[in-house]
Amino acid sequence: MKQTIEKLENITEYIEHIMSDQQGVGASVAIVNGSEIIYSKGFGHSQIHPVNLPMDGDTLMSIQSISKNFMALSIMQLVEKNLLSLDDTVVHYLPYFRTKNKEQSDRITIRHLLSHTAGFPGDLGIANMTAPNVKEIFSDTPTEFQEALDYYNLTEEEIESVKTREDVTKWFQKVELEYPVGKGWNYCTDAYVILADLFEKVTGVKWETHLEDEILSPLNMNRTTSDSNTVEDDPNSAKYYMGKNQTETPFPKNSLSAPIGYLYSSANDLGKYLAFHLTKKPNILRPDLIEDMQSPIHLVSEEWRFGSEVRSYGLAWFTDNYKDLKVVEHGGGQMAVRSLMTIVPELNLGIVVLLNFDGTAHHDICDKIMDIFMDA
């Protein structure tokens, strides 16, 4: 116990040192040992205008692409109920799904979508560009919004016509695959909107309803939501600040594309989520299916790697090694949002770091925490 207290004190000292350079913006950190959150602390501020508000472990924050993990877990729950199989084709459930080459896209499976191996290019833009405040996001210059449209080969009329998740799925008919289905990897954030469309067609239930009833409530994650209005109205909610001048950025919101990156949570709630992935309790998903999510994908017959010998991807989890220990993680980021959740199974350790500013401090903090807990 004394040794653990010393480790946590060292962690606090390190984070305070890191944050001393940040002039007011904040970090929220939680550490999990097995089923227990053993550390929860905020540093700096959740908001700095018009007044400074303190950050803590319950501060509501955008978690960006960590959201994908909740979408993947929802799909795996349908697998457990035998409502679908990961190797079923997408077109079996969504007959209107196709890309430019229908013969190729007819072979895309649910597993391909979850693991980013469908053949899609990496940066399609359609899911993020449907944000209700997209023109505010691209407003630094009079032409920036049009430049963003041109970059993604989109028109304003095109994104305004997208009203539903089915519309996003149908939009993929203009997409040309970058590599043969299942023969490569490219992180395509937009694909997770198709997964939500598929989920809703299979179940007849809105994904957010399932998320609340079958994941958040059983895990007692009462500070996690897809409702941006609830978050913005909450007195303990973060705003986001970019660059040395700490310019406040537009609030990240996009309910249509919630599964790709528009959920909100707290360090403490994500700590509960990591405790579930570490302990497999409560029983909201079979242990073998949790292991499937955390295992490296296979392309053809071999485990796939990122050009390194260890880094790979599972189902909404990156898999890696850190100083010879297996690490399973997912992060997220947009403008001034940074999020990271990491588990080290051999240490029974879970780490959550959420920031309301840009940079790499979330990775530095996570690495330091792993270093301290590895030094037994």
Score class of each variant (00 low, 15 high):
T4P: 01
N254M: 09
Q77V: 13
E291H: 15
D150K: 04
M341V: 13
V162K: 03
L84S: 08
V91G: 00
N153G: 06
P282Q: 10
T164F: 05
K68W: 05
T117G: 06
N254W: 05
G271F: 07
K368E: 11
M71L: 12
I31E: 00
P54L: 00
V328H: 06
Q77L: 10
I137R: 01
N10A: 15
I110W: 00
L94G: 00
T230L: 15
D167K: 01
Y273Q: 04
S139C: 11
L299C: 14
L278E: 02
H17T: 11
L94Y: 01
D58W: 12
K2Q: 14
P287Y: 13
K280N: 14
L78M: 13
E136K: 13
G307I: 12
G243E: 07
V328I: 13
G34E: 06
K41Q: 04
G261P: 06
L83E: 15
Y240Q: 11
L53G: 03
Y273N: 09
F276V: 11
N33A: 15
E178C: 02
F120A: 12
F138I: 13
K253M: 08
H112D: 15
I18R: 10
S85A: 15
H116V: 03
V51F: 13
S85T: 14
A316C: 11
G333W: 09
Q64L: 10
I343A: 04
Q246F: 07
S255K: 12
N229F: 14
L149S: 03
L195T: 08
L195S: 03
G122R: 09
S308H: 08
T143K: 12
N356G: 03
V175W: 03
K323G: 00
S65D: 02
I63N: 04
E303Y: 14
A72P: 07
L211F: 08
E80V: 09
N348I: 10
Y313H: 02
K7P: 00
Q47C: 06
Q246E: 11
S67Q: 02
P142E: 09
V352M: 07
P132A: 04
T155C: 00
I365H: 13
K280Q: 05
I48D: 02
E214Y: 09
A148Y: 01
G26V: 00
Y264V: 05
V175A: 00
E302Y: 15
I75V: 15
D288F: 15
V337H: 00
E291G: 15
K326D: 09
V79R: 00
D58L: 07
N321Q: 11
F97T: 08
